[in-house]
Design a protein around this nucleic acid. Structure first.
Lengths: 113, 113
DNA sequence: CTACCTCTTAGAGCAAACTCTAAGTCAAGC
DNA sequence: GCTTGACTTAGAGTTTGCTCTAAGAGGTAG
């Protein structure tokens, strides 16, 4: 459902991204709807290059409940600004790569490329 | 000059990103202007998440000279489209993170965040 | 002349994020 | 009752991209 392997889900639990995952009588894991939504959010943070240990910090605040909302918002706002930065950097690099392609196409390879 | 450590420069040479780096009589490396420009381009490809083994493929085409320009252009065009994809993905994720922040701010934490 | 500094090498170590192995438990199907 | 298959665990192995160590060479300063 999450497109993550069972290995990865257990790993995320081991390192503290997933906390308090329920078990049935046999000790098998049961992921709740809430868990699935949280996992999707983990994937989003990862996809925007937040390291797992920072996601873990967020996860720990999360289980401590409503009193940590302010800090979590601060974390997300800071992260969002880093994402904006990433996009700006990518844009610059993309532009330069496009220029290099044009240079290559006409005039052959100049300046060491 | 490149903001890369001496370790990293030697590593890049070891894995074949930098080829034919000149040496002086003592065996010490001398980086040419062309090398520096190439290193800047390596940094750009890396910053846009091209893996080092793909940069190495490019590097090998590069030393083979003008006859490989077409293939290099194809590589860069393919890469540029992946960069476009990355930017689009980042944009989507950023939007969703911003929504989550708003949800958090008013109404507390809904849906498992 | 000796100490020091910066380079050289091969190869070891490290951090992040998985990915897998081995040994074991347990319920269900034949 | 036995096999199969999906789960469990601790811990080992893998990949990527560095980062460092150890041993050694050679030029420079005092």
């Amino acid at each position: 459902m999450t497109q993550l392997s069972a290995y990865t889900l257990r790993y995320y639990e081991k390192i503290g991204l997933l906390l308090d995952i329920e078990r049935d009588s046999k000790g098998h894991r049961y992921y709740s709807q809430k868990d699935l939504i949280w996992i999707e959010f983990i994937k989003r943070l990862k996809a925007t290059n937040m390291p797992l240990n920072e996601i873990r910090r967020f996860a720990r605040l999360r289980v401590r409940g409503d009193s940590t909302i302010d800090e979590r918002v601060r974390m997300l706002e800071k992260h969002e600004s880093r994402v904006r930065e990433q996009m700006a950097d990518l844009k610059t690099h993309q532009q330069k790569i496009k220029e290099k392609i044009e240079l290559c196409k006409k005039g052959g390879v100049l300046q060491g490329l």
